[in-house]
Design a protein around this nucleic acid. Sequence first.
DNA 1: TCCGCTCACACGTTTGAATGGC
DNA 2: AGCCATTCAAACGTGTGAGCGG
Length: 445
Amino acid sequence: MQSIRDLKSNFSGPPPPPMAPGPDAYLQGNIRMTLEDTELWKTFYEIGTEMIITKPGRRMFPHCKVNLSGLIPCAKYVLLVDMVPEDGFRYKWNKKKWEVAGKAEPQPPCRTYLHPDSPAPGSHWMKQSVSFLKLKLTNNTLDQHGHIILHSMHRYHPRFHIVQADDLFSVRWSVFQTFTFPETSFTAVTAYQNTKITKLKIDHNPFAKGFRDEGTNKKRRANKDPSCLEKRTKSSYDGFDGEDEELPKRKEEDGVKEERYSPWDAEREHRVRTDSPVGADTRDLYSTEQLVPTPASYQSYRFHEYGKSPSPSSSIGSSNSRSGRSSFESRVPDIATVPDHDSSKPREVGPSSCGPQHLPGPQDYTGVLNMSVAQASKPGVIGHHIYNPYSTEQPLGQWGGPGPSQYPPPHHLTTDYTTQAVHHSYHHGNVAEWSQYPLFSYSCW
DNA sequence: TCCGCTCACACGTTTGAATGGC
DNA sequence: AGCCATTCAAACGTGTGAGCGG
């Protein structure tokens, strides 16, 4: 786990460089990704972000929104997000802080969320921030809607992947550039544990406006027994003396206060001393870039110096993604996307140096990528295959030690094709083992 | 008894179809 | 006929709190 001090230095680092790179920036493969709403994310992170997971699926708040630069304007890219366990533990909320409550449960089926605009030209991704608003988290391991499946009381962080690929067919042959942001890590919960998080969510999430104190939601509260209301108000905000004005005020403070990490203090120390079920010796496999076989010439411009990354967590991590190539060839990713494909939103159609751009509408990759292009909510469209996480091809237990059939030779990535390893934009002390959390579930390739 | 999970609920936001004016 | 702005209802997203089960 990254130390608090390290984190602080990351948070208080220099402001990101301008998003518009120089004309030759992309020639150097200098793809950059910055997280939006970092102040908000940090505010949550300082307290210990929690994300509700429900059976039907719940959006994240704050939701993931990133800015991209350094892409080749006319080359097409696919954007993906998956969730990676922070460690191998299950947690419990004990009064005012999180504590380790044992080993993690077997990892649920690995899901990857495909941004609905994918694939789209680099100019499309760079012209405005890219939002993953509709990404949903669920604890339903039988989920058929393509939501990302997580375990409650476990910690995760989102991982963003940029793949240069003309279509989803060729994703598997392309180079992945992977980005993570330490402040986006969170604990998946079925009900909020830390009342400070509840209040933060209510204060910042417009959908929760009805629960704010400012005079709204009178009807609901009026129906409550005053004593209960008092009790709730007292307990809910216990220890959180910040009123609405506090947050903007805090933004003006420089850096991050160490004491705000208190929810994790004990746990952090514990984890440093405790062996992760996934093993600690592979932590340096947590690479920024996950490489998939591709012609060498194709890669030449894609590798870059990550020290320049504008990520708030930019630091030099380590190492190559090592992999066996045997598994990627026969598997396809389980890619999830939102049911309501945003194909109706304005697309990149204006003139550009790339010539006319036609962003594809929803495409039917069924049978090719085995993706749940989650039209599940639309009767009549669901006819095609929807990924079954519990098919015989994928038993549970990814974490506890996958069987050979489940995880054929170490990785689907091979050093044979990696011209160069690129460091991750940050390094946790005990991040989940990379090999255990491939971009795409092995069951899907 | 404790703890985690599910569900119904009330409330607010978002979305898109319908309508009317120009 | 076409465009734009407004209205309105349905769908959706949210946290709450009671109840259930291990």
